[in-house]
Design a protein around this nucleic acid. Structure first.
Lengths: 234, 234
DNA sequence: CGAAAGGCAATTGCATACACTTTTTGCCTT
DNA sequence: AAGGCAAAAAGTGTATGCAATTGCCTTTCG
């Protein structure tokens, strides 16, 4: 417990813990309501309780875990109402980002957005869900940045990360890929011609649809068989 | 350092620290950019470094302090751009709350909103800035709650608390009180007749005006003479 | 037989000690 | 005299130990 932990990649130990535990929550490996025992986690990751506590604190701030004084931490339980509330917020936030992007994006940002978007069309034809997911995230991040408002960006990214556990399976639905791309296309077109109202509406509708698509999977709670051993990976 | 700390009011030690340090930042007692030394804080509040670290972590999550690995914590420095971004976000968020409130408030909530609002008219005539400030906060909180969306509520309250240091002096401007009440009146009227678009616009404009009023005071950074001794109070 | 009270085990909260990183300071070299 | 390097000092990150709170189990009394 005192020797150097082997080949630690980046950041402080706490960062590792946050990623490690956060991943397991986001991927449903740790189930909502599950108790997160400090000592156990410390033993699992071969660190002391101190960084574990700090990691739990951060995860709590992120809304991934709930903490009650003297009663330990548990994986956050998200009610159906709260989930709906988050998706709703997400739709509004994305709408704001799209509106602002339509008004404020630089010529360079607009070009980059369009190029990336067109490039991703190929992935739709190949039905490359994994890769498309990556481009999808990129696409939305461009919108958030394009708003040129640091605080909006923060709120949006935060909300997105909270929703992550419930968005995993959205592209599994048949035909969702092509539909997603077309919705993106509407947004891009509106942004390119600087039509903020249209961009906002398109973005809002887009998220609303994702929300409905995800609702299916939210009904069944996001858990998995989960037998794999725990260790620090990403 | 080991004896019971006298008559601690509520919550854990960390909560006390968060309130204590947070207050001093929000009130400008601790200045932006000022270094927050763990050992010094621990000594000042007569606790060990452990709760101080946790408190700084939470304050960092709130955006009140900035933390860089191995380099300690400082009171968050808010640039003019970031401040503008926060006010802008606030305007958008309040607009959302007002829109939702117009659509979703129960009859009881609407009644309470109107009654409170009418009652506060008296404070305007008395030019009771302090009391009006209290009602003002109440009023806006009602809007946030009326949206019936937990997540929007959280985002809005969070943003408001971050803006707190820069809003203190807004009612010092002559005539601001009456103007504020009239703007509230427009919002209330719109909500009462369920006109979400009008409510949203009115709320947005209201915040925008507050933003401009506050900008004057943001130029001079929010510091005070600050000679009072430090200790845990609220 | 049930309920309440008290004690015991488990777990969290805080304190202290140690290790590692960053920064400062003073000396040496150019 | 100025710049750079090295060692020490300061400060953060982590580990460990102790105190305090919580929840459960047992025991006892109605």
């Amino acid at each position: 417990m005192s020797g150097k932990r082997s080949l630690i990649r980046s950041g402080t130990t706490v960062d590792q813990m946050v990623r490690a535990i956060g991943d397991r929550i986001v991927t449903g490996f740790l189930r909502p309501g599950e108790k997160l025992d400090e000592a156990s986690l410390a033993a699992r990751f071969d660190v002391s309780r101190t960084p574990v506590r700090e990691a739990l604190g951060r995860l709590s701030a992120m809304g991934l875990v709930e903490r009650r004084p003297n009663r330990g931490a548990t994986v956050a339980v998200v009610t159906q109402e709260h989930l709906a509330s988050m998706f709703e917020s997400m739709a509004e936030l994305e709408a704001i980002c799209a509106r602002f992007s339509a008004e404020r994006m630089t010529a360079g940002e607009r070009r980059a957005l369009e190029i990336e978007h067109q490039a991703s069309a190929r992935l739709v034809q190949l039905a490359a869900e994994e890769d498309y997911e990556y481009f999808n995230t990129e696409f939305h991040t461009r919108l958030y940045r394009g708003a040129h408002s640091k605080h909006i960006y923060e709120l949006t990214v935060m909300t997105r990360s909270r929703l992550a556990p419930f968005r995993r399976a959205q592209f599994m639905l048949p035909g969702r890929l092509a539909k997603s791309w077309q919705e993106h296309d509407v947004i891009v077109t509106a942004i390119m011609r600087g039509d903020s109202a249209a961009a906002g509406k398109a973005a809002k509708d887009h998220v609303s649809i994702v929300s409905e698509a995800s609702a299916v999977f939210a009904a069944v709670d996001p858990r998995k068989p989960a037998t794999e051993a725990i260790g620090m990976s990403s």
